[in-house]
Amino acid sequence: MSDIALVKDQQATRRSAHRIGRLTRINLRNGLLFISPWIIGFLAFQVFPITASLYYSFTNYTVLKPPTFIGTLNYVDLVKDPLFRISLGNTLYLTLVGVPFGTVIAIGLALLLNVKVPGQAFFRTVFYLPTVVPVVATAALFLWILNPQFGLINQFLALFGIVGPGWLATPLWSKPALILLQLWGVGGSMVIYLASLQDVPAELHEAAQIDGAGTIRRTFSITLPLITPVIFFNVVIGLIGSLQYFTQAYIMTAGGPANSTLVYALYLYNNAFEYFHMGYASALAWVLFIIILLSTLLVFRTAGRWVYYAGQ
């Protein structure tokens, strides 16, 4: 957890532990007061579901009947389950390729949209649009765009003499197709970047401009470092979200063709609500939880090297 803030924090905590000063007590009281809504909500609405699902993972539970304890059997089955491996592989593919692409594109668009040009409001809306359009409509559209024969993308590729792939219809290209579809939805994180760009002081840019730094140079040495906390946020959230990726695969491909889009959360969902194996689904969920937690902590660990907090 050596996100800079956290490291400094630990140091601060250690220092204050020696003093056990009045200030620490006041801060503790204030801190707890501020986060008290979350604590209450956590105790009221989250502790039970979380512990219940953990318990279910050690039971044979169909939801239809009370669970019966079976020890670690679900986890043992899971290790032997080929579909567990296939679905985890599919999800990791989408995450490792999709998250970096999504991050770069979202930042790029936010930077573009932060340049004051006529129609800025209009463009901001336009780039946000795909996230607003209901998934049933986007799914339908993508059948057109990704159509192997006359879809926009393959027609575009044909201009360069490239024969486009079968996209969603072939096991090899179905995952790249889903990633493309995801990229359409970067509007959400783009808006967050846009908001953070408003906090980059213009004075810094003006000063650097006087020193002769060009746009690209200023972007990399002023803008990006200053918004690293928000980049950090988006990467972590992107990771958490991508490892739980579900909706489009559920609606558009239902896991096919040849299990190539059977993503982890879809397999989990099938177990819970189609096969009525909530116990097994819970075990899958907790394994995913551990995977997400470890990868998040990994990102936190690297954060000290690249995330800059002005507020610390």
């Binding site: 609405f45 989250q46 579901p49 699902s53 958490i240 819970a272 969920a285 995913l288 998040t296």
Partner: peptide, 13 residues
């Protein structure tokens, strides 16, 4: 709390 898939906490909730 964001990392546990909602599919398994939905029913206890």
């Amino acid at each position: 709390t964001l990392m546990l898939p909602y599919q398994v906490t939905m029913i206890p909730l």
